[in-house]
Structure formats: C-alpha cells, structure tokens
Design a protein around this nucleic acid. Structure first.
Length: 849
DNA sequence: AGTCGCTGCGCG
DNA sequence: AAAGCGCGCAGCGACT
C-alpha cells in the first residue's frame, strides 16, 4: 500500500570522478568545473549569504532556477517552505546560507561528484571561517558531503558530530524541502509536519546550548587496545587474569563476543573470543578461536576466570544486542549469570528512536557515527562471516574495539534517556531480555514422527495437484503460447492465464480473486498454494538438517525461535526462525500437533479480550469500563440497535432473529467484528458500512449513536491525535513511544499494542524471575503464554501461572483481567480448561471450568 | 551466488 | 474488491 514512503533514498554507488584525482579537482576548483561551462546562467559561483559568524549554517544541495535568478541560496519554493517553518527569532543575523555546489546544475539535476569536489574547498573554507555551532543540511547531497553517509531518511531527525576542515560542530540531517513538496499531497502534508518538527527541535537544541561535539579519530578508536592472542602461553594467561580482575573495581565494562555460528546450540558452536573494555583498559582474548590458546589448560584457566567475573564482579556489563551475549553466556556458563547487572545499547537506541530504516539504524556502527562521527566497522578489514578463519589478532582487535564502543555509547544514550524521561521505560524494557532469552534456551519440543507424516502427506498432495494442473486446458495453452512450462508458483504465469487466456482483466491473483473465478484452473491454483505454503512454512522448518539444510530444528530436537524485543514499531515482540506466532490455528490447525512431548501436556494461557480491555484502560470510557466489570454484553446491545435501525440487514428476516439463538449469535459476532471493534480502532462509518453490508447513511446514524454512548473513546482518539501534533510521537500507559510519520489509525493502535505487550511480557518476566524452569514460558504469542509440563504437574504449575498473569500491579489497570486456560496432549488439540478473572480486590476466581 | 522488493498468506 | 493495526516466511524475478 505504501501510505508513507520509506523516505527519499538515492543509492550512492562509488563516486565517479571521471578518472581525475581528488587533489586535482580540489586545486582546480571553478576553473575545471563542468558547471562553469554552461550558457545562460545568471549567478554562477554564488556567494554564501547571511551572518559572517552564524550560530547555524544552512546547507543545501545546489542553486535552483529561482536561486540562480536572484543570486541567493534558498529563495525558491523549497526555501520558502523552509522559512515558513522557522521560528521567528531565527533571523538571518544568526544564520548563514550556502549550498554544497554554488552553481546551478542544468535542469536541477543532482550535482555530480566531480562538481561537488571542485566546490568542496570553497565551502570548507567558508564553514571554517563561519565556525557555526551547527550545520542544518537538507537532503542526501549535503549529508554525504559532510559525513559520507547515505540515505537521509535514516538520519533525518538525528544529529552527528562532524569535522569540516578544521572546524568541529554538529550536523543535523533534514529532509530536502523540495522532496517533500513533490510528494503526493497526502504524504506531503505528513512529511512537512515531520520536517517542521525536526526543524523546531533542532533550533531548540541549538538554543539550549549543544554539548561539545567530539569526533573520534581512527587513531583514538584503536589506541591502547591490548590484544592477548594466547601465543605467550602462561604469561598470556596471567595477563588476561590480571586484566579481568582489574575490572572488579570498575563500575562498567563494555562486553562483546565473537562466535562461530549465530547461536550456541550446535556441536560446532563456539565463542571465539571475548572483548572487554573499561575506563582503564580495553582488551580481548581468545576462547576457542583456532589461532588462540595452544594448550587446553590455558584456555580453561582463562574461561574459569571469565566465568567468575560474570557471576561475581559488581561491574555492570554493557553489550550491544544483549540477547546475543545472554544466549551465549547463559548456555555456556549457566543461566544464572544473565540476571547479574547488564545493559544493552541497542535497546537504549531503540527506545530513544525506534524508527526502522531497514533495520540499520540501531547497529553499533550506525550509532558510532551518530554519537562519535566514526564508522568503526571501517577500521577493520575482516571477513565478518568467517571469523573462525580470520587471523586471531585481527579478530581480537575488532572484538576489543566493539566492546570499547559498547561502553562509550552507554553514557550519552543513558543521558538522553534521562533527559527525555525514558529511563523508567528502558528499565522496564530490560526485564524482557533475559526473559525472552531463557524462553529461547528452553526451546519448543517437536515430535519427529508427526513431522515425517506431514512431510509425506504434503509431498504426495503437491505432486498430485501439479499433475492435475498440468492437465488443465488453459495450462496447456499457456505452454504452447509461451513455449515454456507453466509454474503454478509464479504469479506472472497465473496472471497470464487469467488475463490473456481467460480474458478476465484482473489486477492481482490473490485468494479473493481466484475464489470468484469459475474455471477449475482457479480452484487448482488455490489448492496448490495452500499445500506448498503449509508444507514449506510449517513442516520443512521442523525437519532434520539431513533432510533440509534450511531447517530451524536444533540438534537436540527443539526449535528455538528468536523472540525479538526491538523489532516492532508497537513494542510487541516478534518471532523468527521459525515464527512461532503465526502457526495455523483454525483451518489446518493440525499442523500444530508437531509440537508435543511424550508424558507432557501443552498448556496455554490466553488473556481474554486483552486489546478491548486496553481500549478501556487508555480511554477510561466509563460505559466500556463498567461493562467489563458487570459482564455486560455490549455486542448484543449493538446488534439489537442495528436491527432496529435497519431490519433489512438480517437476510433471514428480522423476526427469525428473536426465535433463533444460533442465528442471533451469528449476527452478534458480526456486530462485534464489523462494528464495535473496528470502531474502537478507528474505522470510519463508510468502512463499517462496507463490512456490515449496510447503506452509508445507516452506518453514519449508527456511528453517531455509537459515539454518543462511547464518548470517552472518541475523546481518547482525539486526544491521541492532538498530542501527536504537539510531540510528533504517540504513547500510552506503557510509556513506549512511536515516532511519526503515523497515520490516524496507527495512532490509535500503537498504544493498545504497547499496553497489551507490557501486560503479557510483565507477567512472563515475573514468572521467569521466580527462578524454577517450569515457570519459564515455552512460547509467547502476543496474548498467550504456552508451557509444556509433565502431565502430573499441570495443576500445581497452572495455579502459579494464573496467579502471576492476573497479578498486575500497574495502577492504570481499571478493568478486570481474564485468563483462559486450555490443555492438550499436543499444541493443536487442546480443550478449554477454565476461565479466571480478577476481582476488584486483586484476588481472582474461576468463572467456569 | 547473494540481495532485494513484491506478492500472498499464516497468526495476534 | 478495497485501508483497523501489527508481524514473518516462502517463492519468484530482477538485479548485482
């Protein structure tokens, strides 16, 4: 759909300087610049404009038509838009304006690398003389010019310390206003809002007084790194032990592992090396790198000392992507070492700014550019995917520098968390990391007999359908016309059949389209898709490595999906490898029966209607809140209201509804799913009309009454939107923030999902913190915690889980919570086994067995 | 050979 | 036949 684009991103290949050296271009300047040989320019080699000693230096790409005409930078439509959003007090006496290239390129094209380099010395000199506290740069071109970074959409809204010639200052990357002006109008307004907000915050930061910018040099990054490679035998052991013991007196230590394999569960998984960095030392030593210790006892002595450090040192350990270090530490040195003091710089970065940027904006390298102006990965020439084979000293140096920068990042990020009132959010988030890691370590048992049965069945079914498809008339026509075999997995092939052979004129070929096509071809394709989807997504990932290289099965017969805590925009977890959160539950639910363990029961606990309850918590709507306490069925109410307003909605006749309870339930469910919940989550009357299949004016009338009744919810919707316009983000009780751009419906959804996740993860963490492994969930699926327990223990353990899931201490919980239990021999076929609800005094009771 | 975006479809 | 939101994965096809 792409309501919001990822932002302007122009790929930057290697710069083509036409074979001319940088030195030549810099020396030649305007005299050799191709732009100077154009005709019809009114103001080539345009001079900078504004204050001689400005606070802020406004840097654009190049003059446009208007600029060339008037002889001043930033005076075209883009400049007008920019000025419109500038605070009044920022007059030209505090600003200086210039472009990376001072002569207009033809047709407003991007300036070429050669042109940029010819101009560079004059711009640098001007910035050196102007000595601004900050440069506000607009678009990709100045960003790359000043920082060598690409992709402005990743940088927009952040700030980077930069060195320009001899001058060091802060660089604020902004979108280019002309890019925003050229977006389709709906996107344009939203991005203009983001742009204005960034500009406002940037001026505010300058006004408040920026901290001293420090740009780290490669020399500084590498200075005093002690690499102990093990070649010195006893002496090296002694030195490592000495260094580790030195850390006990330090408050903090950066910590980083290099490993063979991503995860510790395989026979050949190894920690290759450990990097540690404190105020006084930065060092790395090998553990199982093949170029490391020559004698096992040396290796073991060092590992012993390191393990003692993990358990006993008062030092707080700082990692980047802590879940990784936790999983390796917990598996290698025992699960208890991961609840000693740890910090995670990736989580800090995510809480400070969760905007994704293709997942790159929270990498250690990116953050080192952001905070220290130095891309630390560029310091090393190393095959990162093959550290096992890389020279041990290279690995160790790389490892130590990473540890150093984990620690370096911790301080400014913690400062910003405090400044923004987000420290509590960070602390609450940090409980998730050991919790999720321990769930990963525990794993999910898979029954290989069941897996083999499914594989056989799906393989046979797939072959049969393929044969059927090949025999269909249109498929044979396809082969004749195209001279190539028909691939039922290829949507272009399917589209060809639908549009060129069956003459349908459809824009896509998804399920809803194919269902309407009468021809047997469509039915066959749907069956083919169903079989291949289920087979490859839910069976192959469980097969042994001997049968499927890409399996997610671990050698001990368990799967261990990652439960990631800094991946979603809404602070839910996400799951991958395989995704445990999307296994079929209705049709084809039997696929879940692959998860089972002999002598054990699968026991699931769902929070009932958690998101609807979250709406009550966020909106505090009195009618909704009261309905939860009184077990009042609002859906029945609204079914009746709709029938009174529009009897024709009941195809079977409104009268039969009163006498047929099953029919009533059907329409009640439709009301719930097509009117009540969508409206809670921001659906408009026209959408509701479409879902329900009723006229627009009826839906509007219905909505008027609905919002009359649930005014608290409507007010909450409005409040959230108004807050967003002020702050540029949306938040809720959880305190987690989602930054703009945000569409109106995302605005409503984000706090709901965050609160939901907080409640579930808090319960999961409290259970985990109890200690015994039985209370560590095997799975977490948004509103569901699932455990696999010995049959005879189910009652005993259940009681604890229900107690903890219902014992929530947040003071914003204003409705009862409900937990529904189900129990089965496998994950697929479970029986309901009790519904439990909190009372006002915090105790709970069982509603029904 | 690996990356990337797209489509389609599974879940909450 | 299509816009309440949030995810991950397989396969394809275009690209390097």
């Amino acid at each position: 759909m792409g309501f919001f684009p990822a932002g302007p991103a122009r790929p930057q290949g290697p710069r083509d300087l036409g074979g001319i050296s940088l030195a030549t271009l810099h020396k030649g300047g305007c005299s050799i610049c191709p732009l100077n040989h154009q005709r019809g320019l009114q103001h080539p080699q345009m001079k900078p404009h504004g204050a001689a000693r400005p606070l802020v230096y406004m840097l654009g790409e190049a003059p446009g038509e208007k600029e060339d005409e008037k002889g001043r930078p930033f005076v075209g439509p883009a400049g007008d838009m920019l000025r419109q959003h500038m605070p009044d007090k920022w007059r030209d006496d505090r600003l200086r304006w210039n472009n990376v290239v001072r002569t207009r390129p033809p047709n407003n094209r991007d300036p070429a690398p050669v042109e940029i380099e010819c101009c560079r010395p004059s711009i640098i000199t001007d910035i050196e003389e102007a000595a601004p506290a900050a440069i506000f740069g607009f678009g990709n071109v100045p960003l790359h010019w000043a920082t060598r970074q690409t992709t402005i959409s990743n940088w927009n809204g952040r700030r980077i310390p930069v060195r320009i010639g001899k001058h060091v200052c802060w660089y604020f990357p902004m979108l280019h206003p002309s890019y925003i002006l050229h977006l389709p109008s709906r996107n344009s307004e939203e991005w203009e809002f983001i742009f204005a907000l960034n500009l406002y915050h940037a001026f505010e930061a300058v006004e408040a007084g920026l901290p001293k910018p420090v740009v780290h040099t490669p020399e500084r990054a590498l200075a005093n790194v002690e690499v102990i490679d093990g070649s010195g035998g006893e002496a090296d052991v002694k030195r490592v032990i000495e260094l580790i013991r030195g850390l006990y007196d330090e408050k903090t230590a950066g910590l980083d592992y290099e490993t063979k394999r991503l995860r510790p569960y395989y026979n050949d998984s190894r920690i290759l090396s450990v990097g540690l960095s404190s105020r006084t030392s930065t060092f790395a030593f090998p553990v199982d790198h093949p170029g490391g210790w020559k004698k096992t006892r040396h290796r073991d002595a060092v590992v012993d000392e390191y393990k003692r450090f993990l358990y006993e040192a008062p030092t707080v350990k700082i990692a980047h992507q802590l879940a990784f270090e936790h999983e390796w530490s917990g598996w290698t040195f025992g699960r208890d070492c991961i609840r000693t003091g740890w910090e995670d710089t990736a989580s800090q970065a995510y809480i400070l700014d969760e905007r994704p940027g293709h997942g790159k904006c929270h990498s250690l390298n990116f953050l080192c550019v952001q905070y220290f102006g130095l891309p630390i990965k560029d310091l090393h020439r190393l095959d990162k995917d093959n550290l096992n084979k890389a020279p041990v000293r290279d690995v160790l140096q790389y490892n130590a520098v990473d540890a150093r920068y984990c620690r370096f990042l911790h301080f400014p990020q913690m400062q910003r968390l405090r400044d923004e009132g987000l420290e509590g959010v960070y602390r609450s988030h940090m409980r998730r990391i050991p919790t999720m890691v321990l769930t990963q370590m525990k794993g999910i048992p898979v029954d290989q007999e069941v897996v083999a049965d499914f594989d056989k069945k799906f393989t046979a079914r797939k072959a049969k359908i393929e044969a059927e498809i090949a025999a269909i008339d249109v498929v044979q026509q396809f082969t004749k016309r195209k001279g190539a075999p028909f691939n039922p997995g290829s949507n272009p092939d399917i589209m060809f059949v639908l549009n060129k052979l069956l003459l349908l004129g459809t824009a896509n070929c998804d399920e809803s389209v194919l269902e309407t096509v009468k021809h047997p071809f469509a039915r066959a394709i749907l069956r083919y898709r169903n079989v291949t989807k289920l087979h490859s997504t839910y069976v192959k990932c469980l097969m042994p490595a001997t049968q499927n290289e890409k399996t997610d099965l671990h050698p001990d017969g368990l799967i261990r999906p990652f439960l990631l805590t800094t991946k979603t925009r809404t602070w839910r977890t996400s799951s991958e490898g395989p995704n445990e959160q999307n296994w079929p539950k209705r049709e084809n639910k039997e696929l879940r029966s692959q998860v089972r363990k002999r002598g054990h029961k699968v026991v699931s606990f769902d929070y009932g209607q958690i998101q609807a309850r979250n709406v009550g918590m966020e909106s505090r709507d009195p009618v909704l809140v009261k309905a939860f306490w009184d077990h009042y069925d609002i859906h029945t109410d609204w079914t009746e209201a709709l029938v009174r307003l529009y009897p024709a909605w009941i195809k079977e006749g409104a009268k039969t509804l009163a006498t047929d309870p099953k029919l009533f339930k059907k329409y009640r469910d439709r009301t719930k799913n097509e009117l009540v919940f969508p409206s809670f989550f921001g659906a408009q009357a026209t959408s509701v009309a479409r879902y329900l299949g009723i006229p627009d004016n009826i839906a509007r009338e219905l909505h008027d009454r609905f919002w009359d009744r649930f005014g608290g919810i409507r007010n909450w919707h409005r409040r959230v939107a108004a807050d967003y316009k002020k702050t540029g983000y949306v938040t809720g009780h959880s305190g987690f923030r989602r930054r703009g751009p945000i569409s109106p419906n995302e605005l409503i959804n984000a706090p709901i999902q965050a609160d939901e996740s907080l409640i579930v993860c808090d319960a999961m963490a409290r259970l985990s913190e109890l200690g015994p492994e039985e209370y560590q969930a095997n799975m977490e699926i948004h509103d569901d915690l699932t455990f696999i327990w010995p049959t005879e223990k189910v009652d005993e353990y259940s009681e604890v889980v229900i107690r903890e899931m219902l014992r929530v201490e947040y003071d914003w919980i204003n409705v009862p919570l409900v937990v529904e239990r189900s129990i089965g021999d496998d994950w697929a076929f479970k029986e309901d086994a009790g519904v439990f609800e909190t009372k006002r005094d915090g105790s709970y009771y069982e509603i029904k067995k």
